[in-house]
């Protein structure tokens, strides 16, 4: 009877969906949106958007791999790097890399920041890649930059 309980508990633990929790502070003046495209997305009234996605680490790779893959893909798509990649750290101590780009949208320059964290779990299925994106028209983004930076550094992977 006791053995049956143990097997049941193990099966329950393995079958439970991996937790993709993270914590982000919605910047002041931003409104959190409810949509399916992102795990989290908030926007300011003038169009600066902050979004987070928690993705399974498949294929399993480290921060160097994902940061390089992201930068390659963005530059392929015409994003111009705005400075060197910046090492960042989440509020709970996970290392990350932030890339900043400039790109034109409808003839206007826009800023686009993408920050990647990799959280390696005890089980492979718990390993996560967190993508924190921020962007908007360059003019409006300049005013929201401190808020966005604060939100990124306050980001927690758990």
């Amino acid at each position: 009877m006791r053995a049956n309980r143990f097997v049941f508990a193990l099966a329950l633990a393995l079958s439970a969906p991996a937790c993709a929790s993270f914590h982000v502070n919605t910047p002041s003046g931003f409104a959190e949106l409810d949509d399916d495209a992102y795990d989290y997305r908030a926007t300011s009234a003038d169009g600066v958007v902050l979004a987070v996605r928690a993705l399974r680490n498949r294929p399993s790779a480290n921060l160097a791999f994902w940061s390089r893959a992201i930068d390659e893909r963005m530059q392929q798509r015409g994003y111009t790097p705005d400075g060197e990649p910046r090492p960042v750290q989440s509020a709970d101590g996970y290392a990350g890399v932030q890339y900043r780009y400039v790109i034109g949208v409808n003839g206007r320059p826009h800023r686009y920041w993408v920050t990647v964290y990799v959280k390696s779990g005890a089980f492979l299925r718990r390993s996560r890649v967190y993508i924190v994106e921020a962007g908007g028209d360059r003019e409006t983004f300049e005013g929201a930059t401190p808020l966005v930076e604060r939100a990124i550094t306050a980001f927690r992977c758990s």
């Binding site: 498949r58 893959a69 949208v105 686009y112 994106e133």
Partner: peptide
Amino acid sequence: QLLNLPVPWLDTLGIGRLLNIR
């Protein structure tokens, strides 16, 4: 020659999708 990583979400990055609010 670019390696086409089998990671679909890489293609969803970018400001177009980010700013596309419906």
